[in-house]
Design a protein around this nucleic acid. Structure first.
Lengths: 200, 200
DNA sequence: TCGACTATACCGTCTGGACGGTATAGTCGA
DNA sequence: TCGACTATACCGTCCAGACGGTATAGTCGA
């Protein structure tokens, strides 16, 4: 179904990301992406039937990548609070790479690039929205008080999005301390109100 | 310096916002904005010398509007934690309007519209970034432990931005409970580490 | 107070360029 | 020989911005 070699496909996707990150969404034209990827315009159209398909693939890629991070950071352990802790760790992690400023981090900026790219056609955000709904559902039934878990989720998103847009990103020691506070909040939180508790 | 009547200018800005909110950034053309505002394309160019100037004015307007909100919600009282509390209240407030879902709120979506519009030319974000830097500075020297204040700021931004993009926005009771938790966090926080304390 | 002139606030049209997409012919390695 | 492209040419559309025009209100000297 998807034509072309996976390698070239990935190269195009990376090139498009780099381009958006560097120059902004408006510069993401088929010509520019082709040039950046070292591929002809026809080559791009060979892999992605339209520009929208390209952007859509970029969104898909981001979602998959963050889900993989969640796994990596133990968000699917199943214990109470595991998902929320994993979500926070996955958000915090990129900036922990030594010598790698958060704003230079690829994954971080990637998300923003996509958000921005997608903003030009709100339709393309739908898969991302669905994924976020699922994450929020997982967070709020994670064995922590829902408002504590949600607070952690929102702070993580705030961290991520402010990095993304360069809106007073929080870095270094302050970032770590915020993380510690959040972990402390979760540790102190009373045991989970489960669905059964709710029903009583 | 700014040409044209302030009324028409404001009408154009409002029209552009409505348009972006309704149809997405990519639909914000001079023609479309002119039509929406009941003005000719030439009329728009009379008020804003270029499309970029229009978008830039939209950003400026958002910044001013949020600063006004901060004042309105007592962010400039001068007491310890006042700014941070005001910031949180200003973020929470729109959803408190009865019968007005947060995603339908103009100011909320306005911000997103601008962010998105601006994403196409990262340069235009600069004034917004500067303002955010100032807000972060105010928050973190507000008489609360910096990481608590920053945490509140980030959660507010998370609330705002997830509303904005429709990324699992938090509404209703849960939203209120998150707010309460944050206020409680600030109330419980130890007294301000002042600059003098730091120097010791 | 009247005519000349100016400034302001627009309107409507045109143009040049960019961009998405199509089509087609050809290359090249496995 | 077929899949994976490259290279190039082209079409239709959209859009920013330039430009010339117009209507109206105000100014000012005689």
């Amino acid at each position: 179904m998807t034509r072309g070699s996976p390698e070239t496909r990935a190269r195009i996707l990376c090139a498009a990301e780099d381009l958006v990150i560097r120059d902004g969404v408006s510069k993401l034209t088929l010509d520019a992406a082709a040039h950046e990827a070292g591929v002809s315009k026809g080559g791009i159209l060979y892999h992605f039937p339209s520009r929208a398909a390209l952007v859509s693939a970029m969104v898909e890629r981001f979602v998959v990548s963050f889900d993989a991070d969640l796994d990596r950071y133990g968000a699917n352990g199943g214990g109470p609070g595991d998902f929320t802790r994993g979500y926070l760790r996955a958000t915090l992690a990129p900036s922990e790479v030594p010598g790698d400023a958060p704003r230079d981090n690829r994954d971080q900026r990637l998300g923003g690039a996509l958000l921005a790219g997608v903003a030009s056609d709100p339709e393309l955000l739908t898969p991302l929205r669905d994924r976020f709904d699922a994450w929020q559902a997982a967070v709020s039934s994670d064995g922590l008080p829902a408002e504590v878990a949600t607070l952690v989720r929102l702070t993580s998103d705030g961290l991520w999005l402010s990095d993304l847009f360069g809106l007073a990103p929080v870095t270094g020691e302050l970032r770590e301390k915020v993380g510690e506070r959040l972990f402390a909040l979760m540790d102190e939180a009373p045991a989970a109100p489960t669905d059964e508790d709710e029903r009583r």
